[in-house]
Computed example of a mutant assay.
Amino acid sequence: MAVLVTGGAGYIGSHAVAALLEKGEQVVIVDNLYQGHREAILGGKLYEGDIRDAEFLEKVFAENDIDGVIHFAANSLVGESMKDPGKYYHNNVYGTLCLLEQMVKAGVKRIVFSSTAATYGEPEKVPIEEFDRTLPTNAYGETKLSMEKMIRWFDVAHGVKSVSLRYFNAAGAHESGRIGEDHEPESHLVPLVLQVALGQREFISVFGDDYGTEDGTCVRDYIHVSDLADAHLLALDRLREGGESSVYNLGCGNGFSVKQVVDIARQVTGHPIPAKIEPRRSGDPAILIASSDRARSELGWSPRRDKLEDIIASAWKWHSANPKGYGLR
Rank of each mutant, 00 (worst) to 15 (best):
S76Y: 11
A62L: 15
G43I: 10
A73G: 03
E58M: 04
E63F: 12
S76G: 04
F56Y: 13
G43T: 12
F56A: 06
D53M: 08
A74F: 07
G68A: 14
F56P: 06
E39Y: 01
R38N: 06
F61E: 10
H71L: 05
S76I: 10
L46I: 11
D67P: 01
G44L: 03
I51T: 14
D53I: 08
H37P: 02
E48L: 00
V69D: 01
A73E: 01
V60L: 05
F61W: 13
E63R: 14
A62N: 12
G43Q: 00
G68I: 01
I70A: 03
G44H: 09
I66Y: 03
N75V: 12
D50E: 08
A73L: 06
I70H: 02
D67A: 13
F72E: 00
N64M: 15
E63V: 12
A40S: 10
G36R: 02
I41Y: 00
H71Q: 12
G43Y: 09
E39H: 03
L57P: 07
F61N: 10
H71G: 10
E48M: 04
L42N: 02
A54R: 15
V60T: 04
D65N: 15
A40G: 09
R38H: 14
H37R: 11
L46T: 08
R38G: 05
E63I: 14
A74R: 03
E63K: 11
K59C: 04
D53Q: 08
H71V: 12
V69K: 06
A73W: 02
K59Q: 11
A73F: 03
F61Y: 15
V69G: 00
F56I: 14
I41S: 03
D67T: 10
G68S: 08
L42G: 08
K59I: 11
I51V: 15
G43C: 03
L57W: 03
A54L: 10
H37W: 07
I70R: 00
H37Q: 02
K45I: 15
D53W: 04
A74I: 04
K45T: 15
H37D: 02
E63T: 13
D67R: 15
G43R: 08
E48C: 08
V60D: 02
A54Y: 05
K45E: 15
A54H: 09
E58L: 06
I41D: 00
A40C: 09
Y47S: 07
F72T: 01
I41N: 00
R38Y: 05
G49L: 02
A74L: 04
F61G: 09
I70V: 15
D53L: 06
E39D: 13
E58K: 14
A73V: 05
A74K: 09
E58S: 12
I70Y: 01
G44I: 12
E63H: 14
K59W: 05
E55K: 14
E63P: 13
H37M: 00
A74W: 04
L57Q: 10
A54G: 05
G44Y: 07
A74P: 00
E63C: 13
K45W: 01
Y47P: 10
D53E: 07
V60Q: 02
V69M: 01
